[in-house]
Nucleic acid binder design. Sequence first.
RNA 1: GGGCGAUUAGCUCAGUGGGAGAGCACUACCUUCACACGGUAGGGGUCGCUGGUUCGAGCCCAGCAUCGCCCACCA
Length: 921
Amino acid sequence: MDKTYEPHAIESRWYAFWEERGHFAPSGQGEPYCIMIPPPNVTGTLHMGHAFQDTIMDALTRYYRMKGHNALWQPGTDHAGIATQMVVERQLAGEHKTRHDLGREAFIERVWAWKAESGGTITRQLRRMGASVDWARERFTMDDGLSAAVREVFVRLYEEGLIYRGQRLVNWDPVLHTAVSDLEVVSAEENGFMWHIRYPLVEGGGDLIVATTRPETMLGDTAVAVHPDDERYKNLIGLQVALPLTGRTIPIIADEYVDPAFGTGCVKITPAHDFNDYAVGQRHQLPLLNIFTADAKINDSGPEAYRGLDRFEARKRVVADLEELGLMEDIKPHKLMVPRGDRSHAIIEPFLTDQWYVKTGPLAGPSIAAVKTGKIKFIPENWEKTYFDWLNRIEDWCISRQIWWGHRIPAWYDPQGQVYVGRSEAEIRDKHRLGPEVVLNQDPDVLDTWFSSALWPFSTLGWPENTEALKTFYPTSVLVTGFDIIFFWVARMIMMGLKFMGDVPFREVYIHGLVRDQDGQKMSKSKGNVLDPLDLIDGVGLEELVAKRTTGLMQPQMAPAIEKATRKQFPAGIRAHGTDALRFTFAALATTGRDIVFDMGRVEGYRNFCNKLWNAARYVLMNTEGKDTGLNGGAVELSQADRWILSRLQSTVAEANAAIRDYRFDQVAQALYEFTWNEFCDWYLELSKPVLTDPASAEAAQRGTRRTLVQTLETLLRLLHPLMPFITEEIWQRVAPLAGVAGDTIMRQPYPEANKALDAAVAVTEIEWLRQFLVGVRRIRAEMNIAPGKPLPALLQHGSEEDRERLERQRRALTTLGRLGSIAWLGEDEPAPEAATALVGGMKILIPMAGLIDKTAETARLDKEIAKLRKEAERGVAKLGNADFLGRAPAEVVDKERARVAELQIAVTKLEEQLARIRQL
RNA sequence: GGGCGAUUAGCUCAGUGGGAGAGCACUACCUUCACACGGUAGGGGUCGCUGGUUCGAGCCCAGCAUCGCCCACCA
């Protein structure tokens, strides 16, 4: 093995090995375990959020696979209707063309071509992450099978009356020219104005002043509303006002929707262009006057002077004309919530159109119940509240989109406008006995991308066919996703799963946080703070990184600032850390219910951890390859150190298993890190050295240590495998045969289970004693400024019988690791020489320092130590002096406190004696 | 307006009733034959604030402050 861990060399070979040998496929045996990947956009690229999510899913899949489950991680990609169409339209724009220049068919061909060209990127990147998905089952939301599932669901819902077509106000994106769902509209506060406009009473005698943030919509007003109990206006209800600029008169109506305390208490009502006004209009049978085109320009229903003007242009003109007429009472700055499309960022216009809807009420009820009854569990639980709130207030889902890339709505129209819904035109002709003379035209619209995503948990498994896969893996085990798509996706999968499968789509929903940059900012291209997971894995030069961050920006003027910040944060670019280190970092940061602030220091730390593991393995191999590990007969004798590490390993195994089942990847990572570094490497490997290097040690003891070394490492590798698949496979391939384990790959080996028979409390206490002994000696050495390599004599005093036995067993380890020239007992009453002291329980270690002792330093050291212990002891004494504590605290807590105080007091006494002795020198 | 979350060492975070922790960073010493992507030792925190419950509070309760996120039609 190379002296240094080089991730690239390792990672390039094992993935292909696993894939070629079919290790990602479900074994076909054991309890099913299934995770559906949240399908990324087929033309997308891997970002930190994916890498994080994929790490969690892969860790779970590998864990349960090793646990003997029939594990399937189902891969696939999403066609991402609007997002993908926009990318291709942008490419066309570069050629000075629009999709209309190409025509629908040619445009869709072009999108497929783009998919073919870029569609492999994200799956290649998934492979780099080590994702153990079953590629043989890979699906795409627009492939034939999934498209058939989409049509089937649509037809069945339509036939049941749960899909309908209707004309109502929708969220219209005037730039994309399509309706979007409520969820695709993002409202944010922006600066605007409140215009106060005077509407004269037709009968004369004054006017009403309405307040609005959108003066141009007055051209579509069909009433003015006041509150029925508003004394100011009560007598005007039923009268008419002259709507300025239009020559129309409109009624004054009374509606409780109006808040008399807000603005002037008079509200202009524009039923065709405002959701609230629409509702008011419905109650009062007001006419709907649509004054916009699909581009949000004034249409022919508007006054001639404004026709053809864009909505913002029309606003300026309306305001100017009202001012000229003296009808503009006031203009005040006003902050308002502006709704924008989440893709186009265009201001969304409430717009009257015919659209297809899913009636959600009947689907929401069972979806709420599924979570309430615990058939689906959210982790962390508090997201259930968010889920309930949304489902309780859910509106019907607008599913039609006026774009071209997506599943075409399976509805056809005859020349009379009669609509037919079916799986195909042929089925419809057959069912309705429509001859070839009847021309049928399919609805031009496509479905919301999330419609097909909602079917993902069963459509990927072959539904509507009742396939073996469907029977085996539905309901799936857990859904791993971000909170941002609970409404878009999670809730809708639950609705559709319950509706069509009669069961929940997954039993648990693990909601993870967002990956943020080092300053806690959301990572985004426009902020120039994105990190490409592959750059963390492979490394990237500064110039390339700057170029990546500054090209293709929506706001190119940001480039210099982004470049500056990037150069400052990564003056030398980013070093290669490897997939395993990145995955371990994500695991370590994955605490539940919290966003993660990505910290480069952590990745570096875990890259170092990989290196540590690598070198520990080198040491183990160096001492076991070609040597007798006691697996082929021959006496084997286990030392206390051997028993200790095996015992500690069992605790770690138990901890890892418990934590992973609780989705506490941070705890898994921490337990394994700590065991590997602080116990296995820092202590056990060091303790093995005296045994293996001393020619005088017994063969049986050497075999015991070699066997323990190799078995502990082999187990540790299996423990770490779900988090760090590559390095563990690489090392395991060499270590397993030495440990007597046969197998093709670590990923098909059993995950370790704690073996209680290996618990060894006695050994654990003894090694704890040894550690205290050595730490005491080392501390003296460091604080007395004694060269690390200089052999020292040690004298022991006040030892118990047990201390004497332990010393004999551990003498060699103590002398080697403590660099002690000798260790000898000093009689109880024998005068101690000038020395520095440390305590191990009641036993005193004296390091003679004849003439060398730095009296000031040692006095200071003892003073400090005594003060610390005394303070703790005093606190305990006070506690024990409290009758309430003695009376009310559990006996075991009191006993523990007593023991602790006694121990502290002994230590204080001994150190004080020593201090007195030093002072006399 | 409603809801959720956060506030613990310089930084990133664990810790949910009984001796304040980890990683990184920092200080000193050390190239000792697995590892300088290392070793040994060390410094560093009135656990946001104020009350309360309790024998005992970082942890439970109430209030406050600051920050963040989600939802919502105030024209």
